[in-house]
Nucleic acid binder design. Structure first.
Lengths: 237, 237
DNA sequence: TGTCTAATTTGACTAAAATCAAACTTAGCT
DNA sequence: AGCTAAGTTTGATTTTAGTCAAATTAGACA
């Protein structure tokens, strides 16, 4: 009876991971079936609605999350309210880290998000017997560092026009848009784009208008955008 | 005879680490004596003179390094030559990573540098029996990510004046200057400061002049600087 | 110490993006 | 469908930092 019960729970957990849409790209993908069994039992899935705060700067770092669905913006604030988005996290991306004592940024859901959480302390315990999880987290962290450094180049050295072009290409890439005229939804409001690119909302709007006038992009209702001249956008970026 | 010989070699390697000035802050600090013995045998120390290239973007990622002495600038370039320094690496900092197939930036010595190198492939092999090295590298990578994100906020949202103030405080911090009027050498040329802060050399120069005129800092020959009004500089940043 | 070059500073002017303000559009709600 | 608030666009103007040019200073080396 107890035996059956245990088996039932474990298989439930594994089912959860087996049916997980990011199981092949999340940091847990490195685990074998045995590790995953133990690991999945530690996870809690939570759904956030648009604009809900996930992490708050300065709070104790208790959880890391793996994004299952949706997009999360990671941002920092100056005292006077100026905001800079330092990362956009997509499905499969890791939220937070297992090292720092506190969160050093805010994380907020853009649209509805589904996130799989783990307690930092439990991951660290788990890693004692499954140290490969460190390599997996390192791989994700390394990607984030690489992205952050690309963005440093953009913020420090690119013009507004180049920034907008780079932003559009980033979104096309994250949407795996393979077409020569990729079409996707821009998940950010103009103000958020401005906070991502280190610009003002007016500059963003003007540059979008220019691209539309020059037929480089088309914009439909609901922030759907089509990149008409991909190569031109690439050369601008 | 053979026995003595082995012992001699091993103790030489360990001596090298025992006398290493960054042994308590480098990523190898996590290793116990046994691990260190094996690890130290894999290392090669190299000295670079000012402006020497250490890594080149696009080249195969063969080595990671731990800085023993000196400062290294990590930078990226746009096609037209615009440059952005994405990181300044100090003694104890890790250069490169063990994940990517290629370097994605340039690394260049600022002044004379002493660097302890390891082959990426050998670190990965070593980690199979010493997986804690992953955690140690993760910790260093995580620091770099945190620094990069602080810099994203600076580049995206701070004014030239605020950038210069932040830069001076960063240097004071890296020099462990505990005094109320910290004094240290600015290791970068004006052009490099500009490339670090996303500014032009003229803007950097003008803002330094302003700070000097307002008696917030003093500058002596040889780029030695004294922060006269630390609190004011902090509030500006 | 003097000479030469590189680095830095300063000035005048320009350009890019920010600010301020208003009009217009979209999306959600009753 | 009409109302409302939020979001976006556009225009006029200002500000900041960039550009171009020249003068000055610092550093390396004979």
């Amino acid at each position: 009876m107890n035996q059956y019960n245990n088996h039932f729970i474990e298989s439930l957990n594994l089912d959860k991971c087996n049916s997980c849409p990011v199981s092949t790209i999340s940091f847990c993908t490195i685990l074998d079936e045995h590790g995953l069994e133990e690991f999945s039992a530690m996870s809690t899935t939570k759904i956030y609605s648009d604009s809900e705060l996930i992490f708050t700067e300065g709070k104790v770092n208790q959880y890391v999350g793996s994004i299952i669905e949706g997009i999360v913006k990671i941002y920092k604030l100056l005292d006077d309210g100026r905001q800079q988005i330092v990362s956009l996290a997509f499905p499969g991306d890791l939220l937070g880290n297992i090292i720092d004592p506190e969160y050093s940024y805010f994380a907020e859901a853009i649209g509805q998000c589904k996130i799989c959480f783990y307690q930092v302390s439990r991951i660290n315990n788990f890693a004692e017997s499954n140290p490969l999880i460190y390599r997996s987290i390192l791989t994700k962290t390394n990607e984030q560092l690489s992205d952050a450094r690309d963005w440093l180049l953009l913020l420090g050295r690119k013009s507004a026009k180049e920034k907008i072009a780079s932003f559009l290409l980033l979104l096309a890439d994250r949407n795996n848009a393979k077409s020569t005229q990729p079409r996707f939804k821009i998940p950010l409001k103009r103000q958020e784009i401005a906070d991502f690119l280190g610009l003002t909302i007016e500059t963003v709007s003007r540059n979008f208008s220019n691209f539309k006038n020059q037929q480089i992009i088309r914009e439909q209702v609901g922030h759907m955008v089509t990149i008409v001249d991909f190569n031109l956008l690439k050369s601008i970026s």
